[in-house]
Design a protein around this nucleic acid. Structure first.
Lengths: 205, 205
DNA sequence: TACGATTCGGAGGGACACCCCGTTTACGCA
DNA sequence: TGCGTAAACGGGGTGTCCCTCCGAATCGTA
């Protein structure tokens, strides 16, 4: 059933050979441009790098959001695969935690992913929600497992956790050593997710 | 001593009467524009509403950040006053929690405040950090009190808490009913901050 | 009142997102 | 293989935005 999502995948795919070629070039150019300048990279420069006119870029990707999703689609799939792997492991609670850390790591190393996914889920944009939906579905299974194992509170939803992870990355991505800060904040949040256990603070001083 | 902060306050103050008049008009126009369009409101439209040229706006506020700080300065002071009031109360732990909720409420009702404060602390901009510093100082006292009362873990810093509050508001401000979501996430985070207490979830299931 | 310093704001440069529309290209079919 | 048509292309134009220059206007003061 999730194949339906992939069938109606991120952007409408081009039919003709040259269109498909340009599409791929644009995604490649966008990938490198975003890696350099973040998700706010100039669309015109992306078109320039891809060797196409700006009109072509806008025809393939009516909004910046669509382009970001095309760029991040592969990474999202990798994240979902990671979730499946972790779900097969022995400790459901640890699996969830490990996956959330993986999500955080992906978001940190892909500037703008957080914002992209966050907004994609909320705009009317039905297609825009596909990446978000994939991740939510993947995370839901891990959360269900962890909940059955009694590792998390009952009133925590997967979107809560993902929103928090995104929020943390969003808030720390401008920080010089945001990674360490993000790590600490994530620990804090995870402590609040466990049912009744006392804190397992690593080095309380 | 914190008066030193106020002495070197947010923006360089205009000296001449007409300059001060325009300054006030710009801040007023920016306040309403930001309330309508968020922190990304067009600077040119703000100048237009204020009835001044765009050059005048840029002379008074060399960066958007400076303008945001001027707009939010009053609210930040109110927040610090709230902190002092709460610090005088009987329960330090509750005082901290109540204050963080107040911070969240202010951020939610002032779109862009979060981003503004977050970035102001990280740019080289010495003046830009003043709002952030005021809030951190105010919160630090509440946290110290709560820690002495044993209401929070030892390894939690006030900047962690403020970053989380900001992050949550940032992540939920585009949501249709972001307020409810923010509330839930804040509960989650606060649960992780308490030393060993089990969750006090209001309505599980 | 008259002077000098400060402030003002219109005009203009550069960058950007986005669109119009004449031209070129690829595909399907005889 | 050759051709007609629909699809795709991209240069150039428009409107917006941020920001700066510099001559004109304004304020405070002697």
């Amino acid at each position: 059933m999730p194949d339906d999502h992939r069938a109606a995948a991120v952007p409408p795919r081009p039919r003709r050979a040259d269109a498909r070629r340009n599409y791929d070039r644009i995604v490649a150019a966008a990938t490198s441009a975003i890696a350099e300048h973040g998700a706010e990279a100039s669309l015109e420069e992306i078109a320039r790098r891809a060797g196409v006119g700006s009109a072509t870029l806008h025809r393939h990707f009516p909004s910046r959001q669509r382009l970001l999703e095309a760029v991040f689609h592969g990474k999202v799939e990798a994240l979902c695969a990671t979730a499946r792997d972790l779900a097969a492991g022995p400790d459901p609670g640890e699996a969830l935690v490990a996956w959330l850390r993986a999500v955080a790591a992906h978001v940190v190393t892909n500037r703008g992913l957080a914002t992209s996914l966050l907004h994609g889920a909320q705009d009317g944009d039905a297609v825009g929600a596909s990446c978000h939906a994939m991740i939510v579905n993947a995370g839901q299974e891990l959360l269900d497992g962890a909940r059955r194992a009694g590792a998390v509170r009952d009133d925590v939803a997967i979107v809560d956790l993902l929103t928090l992870v995104n929020a943390i990355c969003l808030a720390t991505e401008h920080d010089p050593d945001g990674a360490a800060e993000a790590e600490r904040l994530l620990d804090l949040v995870l402590a609040g997710v466990r049912p009744g256990l006392p804190s397992r603070t690593p080095a309380a001083k």
